[in-house]
Simulated assay, not measured.
Amino acid sequence: MDVHGTVAEGFEPVREAFAENFTRRGERGAGLAVYRDGHRVAHLWAGSRDIDGTPGTAPWEAGTAQIVRSVTKGVAAAALLLLHQRGELDLDAPVGAYWPEFKAAGKDRTRVWHLLAHRAGVPVLDRPLTLAEAADPDLGAAAVAVQAPVWEPGTDHGYHAHTYSWLIGELVRRITGRPVDRWIAEELAGPVGADLWLGLPEAERGRVGRVGPVEPPETAGGLRMRPKRAVAEAYADADSLTRRAFAAISPPPDENDPAYRAAVLPASTGVATADGLARFYAALIGEVDGGTRLFTPGTMELARAERSAGPDRVLVVTTRFGLGYMLHSAASPLLSPGSFGHPGRGGALAFADPESGIAFGYVTNGFGTSVTADPRAQALVRAVRSALGRTAAALG
């Protein structure tokens, strides 16, 4: 496999791990970017944009973008945090102060921060939405507004896999008067110069690769890695919160369908290049190339301060969340305990680590089975950690 791109001196382990993902972990097409202190130190790409991997057809290029599923949640979270930073939103206020209809069915004491920390108690919809309904911001917001919570808001946490879309999107619209996709384009992606979109523009369709499943990698004994029994049982049980949360849009959308990629769903339909994601996270923790910074130090600390921790009622593993961001844990390992970011079910990962100055973005068209810790992404994170160790040693 020919790996294209460059790495800075000391980051050679990152290139090696990226190549090994193709030879050992079933990778078919992928991109990776890493920034350190606002400057890019790795930008790699390889493989095919077509999931069948036919040699010579639609090669992955430097600007190839990919749908990144729940990585989108970290981008959407920045919208609410920036509104708070600008004094336009109180994170401790009731959601109903901005969105009166949301007070229905016992949700009147739900706080804004509960939405970001997956504590709102509405990870499911009693009546799932079709894709056409889900993509209508009025219908999606109305559905979640009337939904009764499955636990008292604020008292527990569970991953809001799809309903996060309408919770965050509607708050942004109520506060700013702008749809969330436009707000993200104008206030986040545009100022940073990041190639990322919520609601893929028709003009960018040609840059996006097709996606499909990949087999989980083999263990040393030749067996395929599989989910733990409790997790597998939760996904198999049609009545579980797990199945119901992921089935809030039903039937499951075709992620290669242009209509799905154009849908504005802040929980799942973001499309980005690896560099776009890394650049975005670099701007959350510092200036990028000497220019734009999005979060003040205080907002950055708010983003990564733990708000939820323990057994997740939807994911059936122990998770940790700040405000809209997953935090480092055994279920979702990031670079260090101070890292914050978000994985995407199937492989993609983006995060920032303020202590080391690292911002990381990885996208792939081969979707695996993991929700929070894909083996390919984890191999790359370990390689970045190794590279940091080498550079520290070289500096004495």
Rank of each mutant, 00 (worst) to 15 (best):
M1N: 11
H4E: 11
G26M: 04
A30M: 13
R36V: 14
H39L: 07
H39C: 04
A42D: 09
A42L: 08
L44K: 02
L44F: 02
A46D: 06
T54W: 12
G63D: 15
G63Q: 14
R69E: 05
A78T: 14
L80P: 05
H84L: 01
G87Y: 12
G87H: 13
L89T: 07
A93L: 03
E101A: 14
K103A: 15
K103E: 14
A104D: 09
A104S: 09
A105E: 15
A105L: 07
R111M: 12
V112A: 09
H114L: 03
L116V: 11
H118Y: 10
H118A: 09
V122S: 01
V124M: 01
V124K: 00
L125Q: 03
R127V: 15
R127G: 11
R127S: 14
R127W: 10
L129P: 07
T130Q: 04
A132S: 13
A135H: 10
D138P: 00
L139F: 00
A141N: 05
A142H: 09
A145G: 02
E152H: 08
P153Q: 02
T155Y: 12
D156Q: 11
Y159N: 12
Y164A: 06
L167N: 08
G169P: 10
L171K: 03
V172S: 05
G177V: 10
R178L: 11
R182Y: 08
R182F: 06
W183L: 05
L188T: 13
G190A: 07
W197I: 02
W197R: 08
L200H: 06
P201E: 14
P201Q: 12
A203H: 05
R205F: 13
R210V: 11
P216C: 01
L223W: 13
R224A: 12
M225C: 05
A238Y: 10
A238N: 08
S240P: 07
L241E: 08
A245D: 04
S250L: 06
S250F: 14
N256W: 04
D257R: 00
V264M: 09
V271H: 12
Y281L: 04
A282R: 08
A283S: 15
L284G: 08
L284I: 09
E287A: 14
R293Q: 08
R293K: 01
T296V: 11
E301W: 01
L302E: 03
L302P: 00
A303S: 11
A303W: 06
A305W: 01
P311R: 14
P311G: 03
L315K: 07
V317M: 05
F321D: 04
F321Y: 15
L327I: 07
A330T: 12
A330S: 12
P333Q: 01
S336W: 02
S339C: 00
F340G: 02
G341L: 00
P343I: 06
G347W: 09
A350Y: 04
F351T: 00
F360H: 02
G361W: 04
T364N: 03
T369R: 11
T372P: 00
T372R: 00
R382D: 15
G389E: 13
T391V: 15
A393E: 15
L395P: 08
L395R: 15
